[in-house]
Simulated assay, not measured.
Amino acid sequence: MDWTVFIILLCATGAAAATGVLFQPGEWYISLKKPSFTPPNWAFPVVWTTLYILMALAGARAVAAGGPLLGQGMALWGLQIALNTLWTPVFFGAHRIRVGMLIISLMWVVIGATTVTLWQIDWIAGLMFLPYWAWVSVAAALNGSIWRNNPDRLRG
């Protein structure tokens, strides 16, 4: 594995992580009606840090493995991290629950496509994306539940 590629991809995940620092949940999020399966607040930074490292490792493994699907795999990798970076300021910053649902739904599909493609390049890289896909499944269900349970809080 090329450690330079890993560091570059880790920096890309760092940009997504930075949105979590810039747009923290705050009072608005605390006041929302959330489902019983909402993870505790301490879990979010722990889980996301782990997932961002796994994403960077998966991408670096795929680059090292190469092959005819590498271009597609890395394009999907770039799209999923872009959507990941976008969701936090839309949901927590702009309080756009519906738009957040649209973004996270698209992100879920792209993560799935990325997982399948990476799996074809290097099965371990694909395996590294499965926890991310699972966590975003929970996050999407949480976003959807918040949308459903807070009709008075919808903007635009």
Rank of each mutant, 00 (worst) to 15 (best):
Y29A: 15
V63I: 10
R155I: 12
L69G: 04
W42F: 03
A12S: 15
Y52W: 02
V63S: 08
L154N: 10
R148D: 01
L118V: 04
S137Y: 09
F129S: 06
S36A: 15
L9F: 15
C11N: 11
V46G: 06
I97G: 06
S31P: 13
A65R: 02
V136M: 10
A43T: 11
S145Y: 01
M107W: 13
F23E: 01
I146A: 00
G112Q: 07
T85A: 05
I146C: 01
A12H: 13
T114Q: 15
G93N: 05
H95L: 01
R155T: 15
A134T: 08
S145M: 05
G73K: 02
T38H: 11
S105H: 07
M74Y: 09
L51W: 00
I124M: 05
A58R: 03
L69T: 00
W119A: 00
V110R: 04
F37H: 13
S137W: 11
A18T: 08
K34S: 10
L142F: 08
C11F: 15
N41H: 08
F129D: 04
T88S: 00
L106R: 02
T85D: 00
G93E: 04
G78F: 14
I104T: 01
V90W: 01
P35D: 14
M101Y: 12
P25N: 14
N41F: 05
A56V: 07
A17E: 05
V46R: 06
W28G: 05
V21K: 14
L10F: 15
G126P: 09
G20K: 07
A141K: 10
K33S: 15
V5C: 13
W48I: 03
T88A: 00
T117S: 12
A94N: 07
I30M: 14
G144V: 13
R148V: 12
Y52I: 00
L130A: 03
V21G: 09
Q72G: 05
Q72Y: 06
V47C: 05
L127C: 02
L69Y: 07
L83M: 03
Q80Y: 06
A62K: 02
G156P: 08
L57R: 14
P39A: 12
W133E: 02
G112D: 03
D2G: 13
T19M: 12
G78R: 07
Q72M: 09
L10W: 15
T117A: 07
L127P: 07
R148S: 04
L106Y: 07
W77C: 10
W135D: 05
A18H: 05
A65P: 08
L86H: 04
A75T: 03
A141C: 13
L70M: 11
T19C: 04
L83Y: 04
G73H: 03
R96T: 01
G112F: 12
V47F: 03
A141Q: 10
H95W: 07
P25H: 14
W123Y: 07
V110G: 01
I53Q: 05
W135K: 05
S105V: 09
A65N: 02
L10P: 14
T85Q: 00
V136W: 14
V46A: 14
F92H: 12
V109C: 06
A134H: 04
I8E: 12
T117M: 09
L106V: 09
R153G: 07
G26L: 14
I103V: 06
